Simulated assay, not measured.
Amino acid sequence: MAQTQRPDAVTPVFLLTGFLGSGKTSLIRRLMESPHLTDTALVINEFGEVGLDQLFVQSAVENTLLLENGCVCCSIRGDLVDTITDLFARAANGEIPAFSRVIVETTGLADPQPIIAALQTIRSSRPVVLGKVIVTVDGVLGAQQLGSADEAVAQVVQADVCLVTKAELSNPNAINALVGELHALNPNAAVEVLRAGSFDPDLLLAPSGSRLAAPSTYRLAPRRVRGSQVVRHRSVESWSEEIEEPIMWSRFRDWLDLLYSLRASHLLRMKAVLNLVGHRIPHAIHGVGPLVGALEPFGDWGDDTATSRIVVITKGMDAEIIRQSFRALVLPGRAQSERSADHGGVGSS
């Protein structure tokens, strides 16, 4: 009998991407072989690329396959949104089993940004939330690809989790250097080096309620950025900052409005977990490309100090401009102190 699910249940959609040959196929196999992922819908580009033979296809409904392990698998038919919407409709009609999560696998040259934007437009029988962007990075060729392929960089800067594959085929020093480069490109992403016995599909796909993770729900938390930091990688730059004093939401909102009205085409990613004036719990907000989500509550601080953490990743734009505008509009007192210090501590009369 097909599983049933409350019509108001939220379904997380996990985007799995990675450059050509980085190990997405192997990762999908490992994911789908997990006994706890039976109620999963997998949307892929080509069945043959994933190698589903060993999973023993039981039956097929047009382009939708029901696998022996209970998972539903289908190929993208032109439009991703239509494909996922169709899956929900079939599950509601009892044609296929109900599912509680969706995994979308992209091509190796895909830029996640338009795909993420498309996922945010899905209107189906059940609410959909973007769970995580998971990126596989080749442990042997990853550094070379990041240095020569804009697509590889675009995938990393959009990631919530970076999985370094083929570590056993590479020099440990090279792996450490690659991990450092990934942290530099996307300081707020969790980075995991896949090794034998270290892979936990359930933890990787655990819905977090928000794409922002502070700390990450995966094995390795994002690297903590102390103070203010600007990192440059070819045409991509990132600005990261931690602020201990509470921030006024009205000032932060006005800064975002200005930033996105003037520079939206240069913005790749924005993430923030905020310690707001008048609020005892953290609030999160994130942007992908020119799209910015709503401010939403984000759990609690737990053992962490109530500290705002912000990351903005740009392309073709000086991240120092981001830092200066933030200081001027959101932290005007700190900006004034810095200007006074630059002039020998002498303020205006």
Rank of each mutant, 00 (worst) to 15 (best):
S34D: 14
T17Y: 03
L205Y: 06
A284P: 08
L212E: 00
L194R: 01
G142N: 09
C74F: 03
E181Q: 14
A272E: 12
H343S: 12
S100F: 12
N188F: 15
S124T: 14
D111L: 07
R327P: 12
W249G: 01
A91E: 02
A60N: 05
G70E: 15
A264C: 13
H233N: 08
L185S: 05
L169S: 14
S170L: 15
W249Y: 13
H343M: 15
T25M: 05
A196N: 14
A294G: 09
Q324Y: 04
P12M: 04
H183L: 00
C162T: 12
L37I: 09
E46D: 13
E68P: 14
N69P: 07
V230L: 09
S59E: 12
T107L: 05
A98W: 08
D79R: 14
R234Y: 01
R90T: 08
T217I: 09
L42R: 02
T305I: 09
S75C: 05
E181S: 15
D342H: 13
P215F: 01
G180I: 13
L205H: 02
S198H: 14
S198D: 15
E192T: 12
V179Y: 02
Q144M: 07
G78D: 06
A9R: 14
L55S: 01
I44K: 01
I313A: 00
G48N: 05
A284E: 08
V311Q: 00
P282N: 05
C162Q: 01
N275T: 11
H266I: 01
